[in-house]
Design a protein around this nucleic acid. Sequence first.
DNA 1: TTGCCTGCAAATCCTTTGCACTTTT
DNA 2: AAAAGTGCAAAGGATTTGCAGGCAA
Lengths: 147, 147
Amino acid sequence: MVHPSPAVEEIVSTLRGAAKRVTVPKRTVAQVLVDAPGHLTVEEITHAVQKWQPEVSQSTVYRILEEFEALKIVVHSHMAQHAAVYHLAGTTHGHLICSQCGVAFEVPASHFDHLSKELLRNFGFRLDRHHLAITGTCRQCRERAGD
Amino acid sequence: MVHPSPAVEEIVSTLRGAAKRVTVPKRTVAQVLVDAPGHLTVEEITHAVQKWQPEVSQSTVYRILEEFEALKIVVHSHMAQHAAVYHLAGTTHGHLICSQCGVAFEVPASHFDHLSKELLRNFGFRLDRHHLAITGTCRQCRERAGD
DNA sequence: TTGCCTGCAAATCCTTTGCACTTTT
DNA sequence: AAAAGTGCAAAGGATTTGCAGGCAA
């Protein structure tokens, strides 16, 4: 944690605003999430945290992510039968997961507007746009399969 | 397995067609799935099977469901962080899962046509309509929350 | 008879929890 | 000092796997 970024300080403010304590493990998890490009599993987050703070345990990371999610600092999705992945909240988007190769990528939430309205109108169901993961086949795997 | 239904015999034919062996556990799982109204967890399937065949083990049920899925006899979805649920294939539909109360219900695949086309056009991603599970909030929970 | 299937138990993977100890406030 | 947070290890639930014996073909 040599260079605390402004984004980390924002998260710290959120913690203080919620009367949560600001600790070294929490700052480190925040920094890792800010630095991370995309989605990370808990294990990946733990490893990254432990590069700076080797004593931080995985169960602590789980507890911190749980708290961060309650404060809407992060969101997570479940990838098929595999481990959950976390990333910073803020940009609402859906996740497309290729069931062939496993890649996950994000699409703007606007693509779900139509579906969202339809499900609300027809079923009274409000789609959770922060927690949307859809499986299918990505372009590369489709082309490889001759689709 | 006192009354093997025609639907079970169809499944048996599929097994034979794939050079798979037809066993008592497989017949029983097939019958349970045919009799079941909706989505069942592996545990529920195992319990139902064991009413008829108490010696059938849960790991066998897992293996049978895996085989049935490869043969497109069943499909499964993952409900948030909980166990997977299985049901007979055939009717393509999506699953809506309420993250508040946990209920899961089905909606016709046609509701995903628009999204499906958009994802394919924009991202080359082919949505898997047999394996679609979307989280959100159901009508009852929304009303209870005053939404 | 052959080798696919099965039962059992143990192993694995991801996640949660109990408890004593350490920090933050 | 009080309360919240943490580390460790053990527990937990879901799913997979190794292996010896059993049954369909």
